[in-house]
Design a binder for these strands. Sequence first.
DNA 1: CATCATGTTATAAT
DNA 2: CATTATAACATGAT
Length: 264
Amino acid sequence: MPELAEVFWYAKQWDAGQGRRIRAVDLHPRKRVFRGCDTSALHDALLGTSLKKAHTHGKQMLFEFTGSHWLAVHLGMTGSLETKREPFEPGKHDHLVLHTREAALVFEDPRQFGAIRYYHDKGFPDFWKKLPPQPTDKAFTAVLVAKTLNRHARVPLKALLLDQRYFPGIGNWMADEILWQAKLPPHLLSGDATGKQARDVWRLTQKISAASLRIIGKDWSDPPKSWLMLHRWEDGGKCPRCGTLLKRETVRGRTACWCPKCQK
DNA sequence: CATCATGTTATAAT
DNA sequence: CATTATAACATGAT
């Protein structure tokens, strides 16, 4: 479920544990979410530390702990973070629990497409420093977006918007929203977009990212009904702009939803 | 029982 | 090598 703003919201859910000493770490080393992670190092390292600060970048989260310990979390499709009152007993899909005196910081993920990694570094881990500019950054420029569209000229716009190397944080509903507001069909090949259309994609990527952080990221409020977002999964959902029945079809392996009348 | 799911990545194919 | 297509991952909802 989580895209840019949802990830931002989830990251804040652990704030209740800030500055609280971690007294126990519960994890299941063989779970898929720990692939490539040294779980015993993670376990031993976090004991006795406390959470200093949560960072997010696109769909990536990074939790900074005292003693130069870092926990990178990706929520995949079904991951979530929550804080529970102690004493807390982990459930079936609670793969990592950081226990403090009052609050348990819980990572839950039924499908386990999410991932957890551990780093011990003086500053931000290398992978974090190399992440591409976010849509809300100054460095996310119209020129950069235009170049990306040209470089991947044969990729449908919808698929390109989902590419985290260029549009970090954009997921399925945001990509559909951007294309709907830009009045561009999801199948349009990136290289076939005009200069103005590329600029619209750039502008709306920024606008929708910023607005969803303000609205969903703040307290998980609904975006305006004038957006496509609230209509795209309803059966028989209609375009909020013209009332036409919305269409759904697979584009590059993911479901796209669009208005066949507005988006041409 | 079959299909689908707001994500990523390894591997195959071009 | 660069780019693109497909399958796979693990589980729950419909």
